[in-house]
Design a protein around this nucleic acid. Structure first.
Length: 288
DNA sequence: CATGCGTGGTT
DNA sequence: TAACCAAGCAT
């Protein structure tokens, strides 16, 4: 396999975006919060809410001391509000089990609510500078093309970590840069839809390019239609509860004009099951 | 391993 | 303009 690390490091030095979580001294808590928010939400929508969040809750203990409802409310329209609940739970776990300090050990990080293979290693590498493979969807696409000669990556798999490890340099700081650079390249150049191969530092050693950009198929799962979905109904219910001035609404007054009231009630039930909503005496509210 | 889970910008 | 896409996770 050709060396991918050296050109990635050089390219990153000249092309990395100036993002808040890359500032010196941003802190492990800031990194952790940013990674939660970036799970499936674009950078441009995360930045303003991240900064407001960290001003309000500068440490894990600050968030842990707040009711979960505040976390869900301040998550605003970032989407997938379960992440707000999970981040709050993780803050409580960090306070109770780690003396309020974001853990550095990958297994300790993996044990926190809402943290999986990607986020655990992203915190260990980007906040603490340790040497681990960090694999997100951008990295998987870069490796699928440059190494495997495929047009799109397959579904995420455990194997991805070993594949990334195979291109990491021995130097600890260099390995961190390569992790960041692979993600950044996938975000800016080796994109899903219209890759800018003419601007790619790996073009002279890319297996997909060498093979003539074959369409090797796309096994990624398509997102279900949003319009009319239960997810849309859940979003509408939760929006009402987030914005309720009294923080408390009668069940029957939540999106009463929803076109399918069976679906609305199913959405409420599932939100209660997820812990995102509490039902008390026929009224609904965010969890305290 | 497949599925469900928000929201809004881009093509 | 409907479909696509976005630093995943738990179950």
């Amino acid at each position: 396999m050709p060396d991918l690390a050296a050109p990635l490091i050089e390219w990153y030095r000249d092309n990395a975006r100036d993002l808040p979580w890359r500032r010196a001294g941003f802190g492990a808590w800031g990194t952790l919060v940013s990674e939660f928010m970036l799970q499936q939400t674009p950078v441009s929508r995360v930045i303003p809410l991240l900064e407001a969040w960290l001003e309000r809750w500068p440490t894990p203990a600050d968030l842990a001391a707040a009711p979960p409802a505040d976390a869900v409310r301040h998550w605003a329209n970032l989407g997938y509000p379960r992440r707000a609940l999970w981040l709050h739970r993780a803050a409580v776990e960090i306070r109770d089990r780690h003396d309020g300090i974001v853990p550095r050990d990958v297994d300790d990080l993996l044990a926190l609510t809402g943290i999986g293979d990607y986020t655990a290693r992203a915190v260990a590498v980007f906040a603490y500078g340790d040497r681990h493979p960090v694999v997100d969807t951008n990295t998987r696409r870069v490796l699928a093309r440059a190494v495997d000669g495929r047009s799109q990556p397959g579904p995420a798999a455990k194997r991805d970590l070993a594949d990334m490890s195979a291109i990491l340099p021995a130097s600890v700081p260099d390995a961190a840069v390569v992790n960041a650079a692979a993600m950044e390249l996938g975000a800016l150049v080796c994109t899903a839809r219209a890759p800018r191969c003419e601007a790619c530092p790996l073009s002279d050693r890319c297996a997909w390019r060498a093979a003539g950009y074959p369409d090797t198929g796309d096994t990624r799962v398509k997102q279900a239609r949003y319009e009319g979905s239960d997810r849309q109904a859940r979003g509408a219910v939760l929006r009402v509860l987030r914005d309720a001035p009294a923080h408390d609404v009668a069940s029957t007054d939540v999106v009463p004009d929803w076109p399918d009231l069976v679906q609305r009630d199913r959405a409420i039930d599932s939100l209660v099951a997820d812990g995102l909503v509490e039902a008390v005496y026929g009224r609904l509210r965010l969890p305290r």
